[in-house]
């Protein structure tokens, strides 16, 4: 099949597989060697893949909500592309979780049919952003942390996880750069932009991100995962570099609770994310 333009491609009816949910585009790991390393604690490894996948899935969903609301079309494109990268990471990781747990679920059932209690993401990704300044501050913190984790994960004893991380580090480097450059532009900008960026810098905290869950600790000890506490120095150094260039100040991050509980916002996120799939079981378009 070949197309001269995108419109022709979208209206091409020779093959049925087109884009995303309900279109037959299941299994982004198709053709990848997905054997699980011998001796792996499958339940813990599946849980760990869900954690990394859910962080990306929910962050991507919150970013998608900015589309049509961004200050300029260039930023709309940037945010949509970052959301797409994260969705791609989520699809790979949820598919990996499904293979490892071997319980008859797939990426779609994990994303669209799981109850809230089964979601393993950190609370930071559930937040809404009152202001574009809040979005870019949160994106700097999130992508710095995820980049530090993925960079270590490239040496994971699970070859699939290592490969997903290797691709992801390149993407996250761009996401962090985009967000950090906006923090600097707004922080070191006009009086009003500085005030709003300062407010956002004070509002964001990575403290929860460094508090390890027991699955993260056991996976780190087994050579499959990363102890998030080990990323703290690097993330704090990057945050300080950004704040300094942006002429902003923020207090050190204190406290922090491991992932597990959700904020009240999670119910709304899942209602929107899962509504169509739940209302139309097995539906295609």
């Amino acid at each position: 099949m070949s197309f001269d333009d995108a419109y022709e491609a979208l209206t091409d009816h020779d093959d049925d597989a087109r884009w995303a949910y309900g279109t037959g585009f299941a299994d982004p790991l198709a053709g990848v060697d997905t054997a699980v390393p011998a001796g792996a604690d499958r339940a813990a490894l599946a849980d760990y893949c869900l954690m990394l996948g859910d962080d990306a899935l929910i962050m991507s969903h919150r970013l998608q909500q900015w589309v049509t609301r961004a200050p300029e079309i260039e930023d709309e494109l940037a945010i949509a592309n970052i959301a797409l990268d994260l969705l791609g990471q989520a699809r790979l990781l949820l598919s990996r979780a499904a293979v490892v747990e071997d319980a008859g679920r797939d990426e779609d059932s994990l994303a669209y049919l799981r109850e809230q209690a089964g979601f393993r993401n950190v609370r930071l990704v559930e937040r809404t952003d009152d202001d574009f300044a809040h979005l870019v501050a949160r994106l700097v913190v999130f992508s710095s942390w995820r980049l530090a984790i993925f960079d270590q994960l490239t040496k994971s004893a699970d070859p699939v996880l290592a490969a997903i991380a290797e691709k992801g580090t390149k993407e996250l480097t761009y996401h962090r750069e985009y967000a950090a450059q906006w923090v600097v532009r707004l922080g070191d900008g006009t009086d009003i932009s500085h005030i709003r960026m300062q407010d956002a810098a004070e509002a964001v905290s990575a403290a929860d991100l460094f508090a390890p869950h027991e699955t993260e600790l056991s996976m780190a000890a087994a050579g499959f995962g990363v102890d998030p506490a080990s990323t703290r120095t690097e993330v704090e150094r990057v945050w300080a570099q950004v704040l300094d260039a942006a002429k902003l100040q923020a207090a050190p991050w204190r406290g922090g609770e491991p992932r597990g509980a959700h904020t009240p916002a999670m119910a709304d996120i899942l209602a929107e994310l899962q509504g169509v799939a739940r209302d139309n079981p097995g539906g295609t378009w």
Partner: peptide
């Protein structure tokens, strides 16, 4: 084949096109 970006939505289409 190898994907360019994790979220590349073209991978399924490419797989179909190759097979076809």
């Amino acid at each position: 084949i190898t994907p360019t970006y994790s979220g590349c939505p073209a991978m399924g289409a490419i797989r179909d096109d190759l097979t076809g």
